[in-house]
Every structure is written in C-alpha cells, then in structure tokens.
Design a binder for these strands. Structure first.
Lengths: 371, 371
DNA sequence: CAACGTCATGGTAGCGCTACCATCCGCCTC
DNA sequence: GAGGCGGATGGTAGCGCTACCATGACGTTG
C-alpha cells in the first residue's frame, strides 16, 4: 500500500527526512539531486531540461501554445509525455495568484433541485481543467459568509452562489472576490456581477392562476422551509389569489421545517383539519405535492375532482405519478450550464452583453388539476 | 464592483502592472513596499512583524498552538485579528506538499443516494478547514481514471471514492496517491486502504427472502443502470430465489439505461407483458419501485394483493407512499460521516483498528408486501 | 556542576510555478 | 542600410508559506 500513517506526523517527518533532501557536508549545505520534499514527481524544470528549453517556455507551451513555435511545442510535448509530467496546481495557483477552481455554494446537497444545478455546472466544467469546490450553506446566511471567507483566500477563478439574498457581508465578500460571480436560481434587479435564473414570483403566480382557471376556489398554499425563493412563490400565489378576490390568510400553511414528502402529508392534514372546504393546493415544491397526493390516496380523496394539486420544479416523477401532477418546470440543469458558460466567458474577457439572464419556466398542466 | 474582465488577459496584466510591484531605478530593481502580485492581502510576514516574532512562529501558532508559549500566542492572535489575516491555502499546499482538500468521487450527483453520502461527508468536514473537491465519474471507469489523474497532483489530504470496482489504473493511482483512501458504499475483501459500506448482495437477498416469506412466488427483479452494486443486488435476489427453487431467468428485467421513476413504469409494463403471472417485484432501487407503484395505481392492480413491491435504499418517501413501500434502508448519510471520520483518524496517525467497516442495512417491512 | 536533554523560537532555503522584464533575431520601413 | 518593430525565447525574482536545522535558555541527571 502506498500510504501508512501508522504514527502520524512523526512518521511523516521521518519519511520526508529519509528522502534526504539535503545533507550537511563539513557544515555546508549541499543539494542532493532528485530528492525533493514533493516526493520526486517531475517538475517543469525536468521537462525544460529534457526538451532543451527554458522552463518558462514549457510553461507557455502548456498554457498558451500559440505563443510557442511549433518545433519547440512538439519537443516539449514529447518531454512531457515521456516524463509523465503533470503541472502542480498548487504551485500554479501560488505563482499566478489564481486557482483553477470554481467555488460553488448551494443551500442543500440533497434537495434534488440543487443537485441538478450542480450537475449542470459539473458537466459544463468537465472538459476544462477547472476543479469544483463545493460549499453547503444549509440555507444559512452566516454559514454562507463563513464559506466565502474560506473560499476567498484561495482566489477561485469564479464563484457560483445560489440565491440573490446575500447578507451585506457576503455581498461585500463577493464584490471583492476578484473573480466573476454568478448568482443562480433567481433573477433580480441588483446583481453582484451576473445572474441566471427565473422568477419564482411569476412561477407561483402562473401555477395559481392555472388552478383558478381550472375552477378551483379554495386553493391552499403549502410551504416548507420558506427560504427566500419559497417566499416569492408564496407572494406570487397571493397576488393571483387577490387578483381573483379569493385570498384568505387561513389558506396559507407554512413551516420553517425542511421540506420532505412526509411533511407534505402532515401539512395537508393540518390544512384540511383547519379548512375542510379546501378544494386545491399549490405546493411550494414537488416533495410537498407528492406527500399531499399520497395522503389523498390514503384518505380516499379524489384528485383532481375533490382536491386539485400543483407542485413546483417538475421532478421527473411528477409526470409518472397517478394521477400525474401539474407542476412548474424549472430549468435547473440549464441554470448550471449557463452559469458556467457565463463565468468562463467573463474569465476569457468576453463578458456577456446581458449580465442577468431569465431562463423562464414552464407550467406543465397534468391530471392533478384537470377538473 | 471588484472585478472587471472587460478585456481579459490584457486588462488583467495592466491591472497587475498598475500595482507597480517593482520599479526600475537607474537599471537597478527596487522593491516597492506593500504592492504585491497578490493584491495586498496581509501575509504571514506582516503578522510576524506586527507581533514582533518570526514568521515561523506565527505559522506554528496557527497550526500547532500547543508548541508556542501562551504569551506569544496571544500576541500573534491579536495581530492576526487586527490585520484580518487569512493564510493562503495555495502557498500552504505548495510549501507543505499537502493540500487541505478531500477529493470525493461519486458516480452521479442527482442520484439522491450519493447526494446523501456527500451530505454526510460535508457535515463531518464542515468544522475542519478541509475543503471538498467534487468529481462526478458518470459511472465510468475511464472518467474515474481521468479524475484521479487530475486530483493526484494536487496532493489531497484524503480521497473518498464510491465503489470497490476500480480499474487497475485507478487502483494504482489510489495506491500511490500518498494519502488515506476510503472506498465507500460497499465492502469487499481487498481494500485499497479503508472501506465503509454494506453488502448489496445481502441486501438483495434479504429483500427477496422477505417477499418469499410473505407468500410471493413469481417475483420479478427490475433493474436499471446495472452498475456493480446493482449487479450484486441481483446476485442476492438470484441466490434467494434459487434457494427457494423459484428462480426463472425470465423474471429478470434489466436495462443499462439510467434509473428513473419513468423507467420503473416502463420496465414493469414490459415485465408484465412478458410474464402475466408475476406476483411481485424486487426493484433495484426506490425510483423503479415508485414507478411500479404508480403504474399499478394507473392499471388498477392491487398492491400488495396482486403484486408485491420492494424497493432499495428506503428514501424518505417510501414510508409515506400509499401503500407504503417495503424497502431496504441503507446507511448513506452514515457512510459519508464515517468515511470522513476514518480518513481524519488516518491523517492524524490513528488508523482505525478495522479498516473495513460494514454498516449493514435494515429491511423495512411495509404495506406494499403485507399480503 | 558539567554534560545532556528539552523546550521555545528563529533563520534559511526552498516548494514548483509564473510575471515581468530583457534579449535576440529576422524583417520591414523610409 | 540604419533604425525600428514584433515575435520567440529565456533569466530572474518572487508568490506565501513551511521543513529543516540551529540556537539559546532552561531544567535534569549523575
């Protein structure tokens, strides 16, 4: 096995010492060749020597090949291949004051919405040499600040953060990060730098209007967690309900508890107990909607006849559910992709004309509201 | 705004040049104080100067406080606070030949199973100063090799990889990574270093035995993706079926297509068309099981009476579904937590006695098999 | 009380790479 | 044909930190 930590730091020190980086000879330090702290991987100097060029030319050949003559380029490539040279990203980062890292901050890792954003980011970055460093804010502004503080000194190439409601401190950290910043999931009036998302207010409004149009009147709102995006969906719901003269504060059921299918069932039970006349629910997200659907099955409540259900995000399974569930399809993967594309463009000096991109959403009308 | 990439590299060069790091005076290079490439953040030297100690003592006070007298420690802390000093992780990594980074390789970001492992890893690491670098192998051995090649030169503090079926190349890369390695999700006979997981074979076997015990006889296996773990669940299913004299190759429906709820529905339709006498299904995972359940609803097939359903992983929603779905509860979050704990112990030189930990699973018997 | 640890601290020399010049060469311009 | 200019290449000097060794001040031992 390659690694043994059997006695920790000590073992490591001995290990390094055993490499014998330097040796004292009559009080004078001499360098023993080819034994480095690093453990003997080839360095750029080795490549340069083998190719018969200066180290800087190797560096250039690797990063800006067009600035090196084809002859040397070939020679250098041969030396690289022969030695199996791989540049040390840490040394690069130190020398250039820029790490090839995208910092990504999401509020949750298990919420599949962010998982898909992350997948989009990942897929757009996998051809490049950028690495992804992940941060989970747990929906906490304070934690977001802490993470930005940690990410900053590393000088990431770009930062992608979920949401537009940063604390003043976070906002300052983003503004002074010295790299492109993309706020994702939502759009808003005052980007730190760039934004990719859609309007949660409009999404909530469209979903609610659809239900009203389908003849539902006592439409409840059911929300968990109630992060800023949920709040805006609620505001959209309220706007639609008020416009139709249907709003009633008692129709709104929310909780700060994290969202889950289980919670959806419970919220629905509570709501129904309080408001037996409920004839529809617009759910904060699809987990809640699914919980409501299951509870309807269990309690033999007819969907969409007695109760109409609308979800939010349109997870894969909503279409397959029985009855299939109306939901607002959100462009999560696309948000991830585009955020990276915009960041890469900015890094390359080609800032997008339009720093704020609204990718919209699509209301998927399905059986659960087809009264 | 802090950053403008309006004209790319050029702008950046001008920006740096404008900082005026050095100036020529009569042909002699002089250093202009306090203007660095880095952009003027305080360095360890600044802290050392302010605290009236050597730089190395500051370094020690930060990393091994117990090796510095309390007096100096206080002085240094004061200087750090006053200057807002944050160590540069890139410089640290270069000097110590060790980055404070955990490399994490998962086959999928959207599969909620890995999302939960990731959450466990994240939660266990969030108190420490370790960062998480994410790799998505897309279930590809080749991609895994490529990612290990990228992660290696960075000298991560530890590597956590999903699965135990690495290619020979990947295995060699892991063995020579020079850091603790934890293979997660499964256990097996020949760890690269450490392992945390459970037996997918046993899980599949237990689930199938349960269905047999409940009186099901023509139990189908339904699997998507069929990665190595799915294969082993299938092997467990087969072992149980053969032991009961019930195995029939026509009962097995698999596809290399990625798993989804939609796919579950389709697999079930196919299987039923081929084998109308089917009286139960053991599903590869809960997505498939959910697809089967929905299709049963849609086709008015009674569950558990006509068809019994068992899933795998026991996602939150399986308990809430109607009828609730029997599933094999797997310790995903715990795997993430423990893998980090073991890696941290190894880094600290306290290797766990037991390098391979089987966290087991729990069969959750529910309505979907309660005939 | 001398010889010898042990502890706290510091100096020096890199880690492997890239930014910033300087240099050199060939070619174009007037 | 001298001067200039742009493109290709290289030397030097760090980037900010830590490993290694040295040093000096103590205590401890025989």
């Amino acid at each position: 096995m390659g690694w043994h930590g059997d006695s920790g730091k000590d073992a490591e020190q001995h290990f390094v010492a055993a490499l014998g980086r330097r040796r004292r000879v009559r009080g004078k330090a001499v360098t023993k060749p080819r034994s480095r702290r690093g453990g003997g991987r080839p360095t750029i100097a080795d490549v340069a020597r083998k190719a018969g060029v200066g180290a800087i030319t190797v560096s250039r050949a690797l990063r800006e090949p067009e600035r090196v003559s084809e002859d040397l380029r070939r020679q250098i490539q041969a030396a690289v291949d022969e030695l199996g040279y791989l540049p040390d990203p840490n040394a690069r980062a130190l020398a250039s004051a820029r790490a090839e890292v995208f910092g990504v901050l999401v509020p949750s890792l298990t919420n599949s919405v962010f998982a898909e954003v992350l997948r989009g980011i990942y897929d757009s970055l996998s051809d490049s040499s950028y690495r992804i460093q992940l941060g989970n804010t747990h929906y906490s502004g304070l934690e977001e600040e802490r993470l930005l503080q940690v990410f900053g000194p590393q000088r990431p190439a770009a930062l992608i953060v979920a949401g537009i409601d940063q604390t003043p401190t976070s906002r300052r950290l983003l503004e002074t990060a010295g790299c492109p910043v993309v706020q994702v999931m939502e759009t808003g009036p005052d980007p730190v730098d760039m934004m990719v998302g859609f309007s949660h207010f409009d999404g909530g409004k469209a979903a609610t209007e659809h239900m009203i149009e389908m003849g539902y009147r006592r439409i409840g709102f059911m929300g968990a967690r109630m992060d800023p995006r949920s709040q805006r969906r609620l505001a959209g719901y309220r706007a639609a309900m008020e416009a139709a003269g249907l709003f009633d504060a008692r129709l709104v059921t929310t909780t700060p508890v994290p969202s889950s299918v289980t919670l959806g069932r419970e919220l629905f039970r509570d709501a129904l107990a309080r408001m037996p006349t409920l004839d529809g629910v617009f759910c904060n997200n699809d987990d809640i909607a699914l919980g409501v659907l299951f509870e309807c099955h269990r309690a033999s409540i007819a969907v969409p006849k007695t109760i109409g259900i609308t979800g939010f995000n349109d997870l894969d399974m909503m279409e397959v559910a029985f009855p299939s569930v109306t939901s607002v399809r959100t462009p999560r993967y696309e948000i991830g992709r585009l955020s990276v594309a915009m960041a890469l463009a900015a890094i390359a000096g080609k800032r997008p004309q339009q720093p704020v991109v609204d990718l919209g959403f699509e209301l998927k009308r399905r059986e659960s509201t087809a009264r």
